[in-house]
Design a protein around this nucleic acid. Structure first.
Lengths: 216, 216
DNA sequence: TTAAATCTACGGTAAACAACGTAGCCAATT
DNA sequence: AATTGGCTACGTTGTTTACCGTAGATTTAA
C-alpha cells in the first residue's frame, strides 16, 4: 500500500518535478496535482489521501488557508508545506495550525522522501535550512541576542563549574562540600572569575553567565 | 571507502548503542569511541576521521570545547552534536562555532544515518524536534523551558525596579542614589523580594529574574 | 627543561548582604 | 472611619562576599 500524496502548486513545472521524484517508487504514489487550495480540498473530500504537500503561494486559496481547512475537516490527512521562503513568523503560525512539516523547495529528493516517510509515520519534519535560518536569524524585536563575550574563553573548566554552582545559590562552603575542596579555594576561584570578566559582585556575574550561555 | 565516524560520549551504553547502528553497514565505520573531549581530540590528531559525533555533557572536556578545537584545528573533520536536551541558547552558539548538525539522542537510527550522510556530503542537519522547540518557544528570552512563576505576580512595581538595578550590579547605596531613597529602604525591598520569591541570596534572585523575564 | 597555566589553600580586612523587628506616611478601598 | 497595601526608614546581628597577597602541587606547552 503506497503512501498517497497530493501535490498542490500553481507552477506545473515544479509540481511535475516533485511528482517525478516519486515516479517508479512503489512506496509512494502521487494521486493528483492541484493548482490551488480549492482544487486540493475538493480532491481530498472525494478521495483518500495520506499526505498533502502544499505550496504556500497559490492563487484562489493559498496554502495556509488550505492547510487550516484540511486539518480541521480531514484529520487523517497529514499536511506538509513546501515553500520558497523561510519566514519564521509564518512557520510558527503553521505549526500552531498543526502542519507536520515545512520544507524548502531546494530540498534534495532523497531528503524529501525521508521527510514524507517520517511524516507518514506520525513524526514531523522541518528542513535543516529552516532550522538554521531560525537559529541564525536576528530576533530583534523579540529579544536581543548577545554574542558570546571573548572573555568566556579565559574561563577554565573549573571556573565555569564554580559559576554554575554560584548560580544555584550555593555559598562557598556549600560549593566546597560539593566539589570536595576548601571554601577558601572556592573563594579564590570566585576572585579569579571576577577579575577575568571584570565584574565585582554576584549579580553581575550571574547576568554575565546568563548572557553568555554558561547557565540557563 | 566508508565514512569514518568518531563517537564521543561518557556513557558507554549510549556510545555502544550508537555504534551498533552503524554495525554491518559498509558505508559507515565507527573508528573509535572516546569517553571525553580530550580523548576525541587525541584520536583525531593521530587518525583520519570524517565525522565527529560529540555528546555535549562530558567530563574533563565537554563537547562544546571539543567542537571548537576540532573545527579550528582539523577543518576536514565535520562535527555534529548529540544531546539529551534542546537548549536553544547553546545551539545558536554551536552554529556560530561551525558545527554541522545537532541531534537529540532520541533520534531514530535511520534518521541518524541520513543525517550523517547529509553532513558527510557537506550539508547540515538539525533535528526536527529542535526546530519545533525553537519555533514554539516563547520568545521572552533564551530561557524557554521555564514558565513564568506565579510568584512574579506578588512583586510590586518598585520591587521589580529594584531587581533591575540589582541585576546591573549596583549596591544598595548606588540604588538608593538612583531612586533618591535611603539604602536602608533598598535593603527593606530586598528583604521583601527575597521573602516573596523564597530565595536567600543574590545569585538565586538574578537567576529567578532571568528565568521569569524580569531582566534580559 | 624552563615557563606558563591550573587547581589547590590560607590569612586578613572592609564591604555588602540577609534577616529579624519596628514604624510612620500615603493612597485606595471598604 | 477604618483597613489594607505599598513605599519609606532605622537598629541590630551574624553571615557572606570581594579583594589583597602568597604559595605549593601538578599538568601542559614552548
Amino acid at each position: 500500500m503506497p503512501i498517497k500524496i497530493l501535490i498542490a502548486d500553481d507552477h506545473p513545472l515544479i509540481a511535475e518535478g516533485i511528482k517525478n521524484i516519486f515516479e517508479n517508487l512503489k512506496d509512494y504514489q502521487v494521486v493528483t496535482i492541484a493548482k490551488n487550495g480549492k482544487e486540493a480540498l475538493e480532491f481530498i473530500s472525494k478521495h483518500l489521501v495520506d499526505i498533502a504537500l502544499l505550496d504556500i503561494d497559490m492563487p484562489i486559496m493559498d496554502g495556509i488557508e488550505c492547510a487550516k481547512k484540511i486539518i480541521s475537516d480531514f484529520d487523517e490527512v497529514k499536511v506538509a508545506m513546501l515553500s520558497m521562503h523561510q519566514e519564521s513568523s509564518i512557520i510558527k503560525n503553521l505549526i500552531e495550525i498543526g502542519v507536520k512539516g515545512y520544507m524548502l523547495k531546494t530540498i534534495p529528493s532523497e531528503e524529501l522522501l525521508q521527510a514524507i516517510k517520517n511524516i507518514y509515520n506520525g513524526k514531523e519534519y522541518f528542513s535543516s535550512d529552516v532550522t538554521k535560518a531560525l537559529l541564525t536569524e536576528d530576533y530583534s524585536g523579540f529579544h536581543k541576542y548577545k554574542k558570546t563575550s571573548p572573555l568566556v574563553e579565559d574561563l577554565t573548566t573549573r571556573e565555569k563549574e564554580i559559576i554554575k554552582y554560584i548560580s544555584q545559590g550555593l555559598t562557598n562552603i556549600q560549593i566546597g562540600e560539593k566539589l570536595f575542596i576548601s571554601p577558601r579555594t572556592v573563594d579564590t576561584h570566585r576572585t579569579n572569575i571576577m577579575r577575568k570578566i571584570d565584574v565585582h559582585n554576584v549579580a553581575s556575574l550571574i547576568r554575565f553567565a546568563f548572557q553568555n550561555g554558561l547557565i540557563s
